[in-house]
């Protein structure tokens, strides 16, 4: 039974939720920044030009050449942009959850968390010396570190709340089927009010 797809947009992030082949799939799409891509190419061109300039000089290689190439390499490294196309969370009944990062280059990074290891999903307020943002993390058995569901993107909390609810239902029912996990439950309503649980 295929459920109706849900979609939500906010800024550069688009949230899509659908069921496919018995799996509950939550996806966050990220718009690619054209300026970042342009700067990335500019950095690479800068590096290439410096290398050519050093090679095409009539004099032999000197210390200036090495410094300029190193500087160009550092600039290119800083400007390099590895865009993420989307991050996915697959809820597999009975088995666990799979976290995926899909890049525009076609590379996919996957991490699987078995249901027996999954303790609780948490909406965490992450404080850094510069800023403060929400992140959805997983508490695992026998692990002292939290596992972030979305590693490369920072979606708004209103997108993460339905994902958190789905994960919470999944963990509450021990990985049972979709029909039970997705049912609205009065117990969840109480938790719903406290969606800033830490």
């Amino acid at each position: 039974m295929k459920n109706r797809a849900v979609e939500m947009s906010s800024g550069v992030y688009t949230y899509k939720h659908h069921c496919e082949g018995g799996f509950d799939i939550h996806e966050i799409y990220i718009k690619r920044s054209k300026f970042r891509v342009l700067f990335s190419y500019v950095g690479e061109i800068f590096l290439f030009a410096n290398v050519l300039h050093a090679l095409l000089l009539k004099e032999s290689l000197c210390i200036n050449s090495f410094w300029s190439i190193s500087f160009a390499f550092a600039v290119a490294k800083c400007l390099k942009y590895k865009p993420v196309k989307k991050e996915s969370l697959l809820i597999m009944p009975t088995f666990g959850v799979q976290l995926e990062q899909h890049f525009w280059s076609g590379r996919v990074h996957r991490q699987f968390v078995p249901v027996g290891k999954l303790l609780k999903p948490v909406l965490n307020e992450h404080v850094t010396p510069i800023t403060c943002y929400w992140s959805l993390v997983l508490l695992l058995h026998s692990e002292d570190k939290l596992v972030r569901v979305f590693k490369k993107v920072y979606p708004p909390v209103k997108m993460m709340v339905p994902i958190w609810k789905a994960l919470d239902a999944f963990t509450n029912y021990g990985g049972m089927g979709n029909s039970v996990a997705l049912q609205p439950n009065p117990l969840l309503i109480n938790v719903e009010q406290g969606c800033t649980a830490t």
């Binding site: 800024g11 307020e125 943002y133 929400w134 909390v157 209103k158 406290g194 969606c195 800033t196």
Partner: peptide, 10 residues
Amino acid sequence: EGIEEVPDIR
């Protein structure tokens, strides 16, 4: 506008 406001715990 990009900074998300925190919901209140009642």
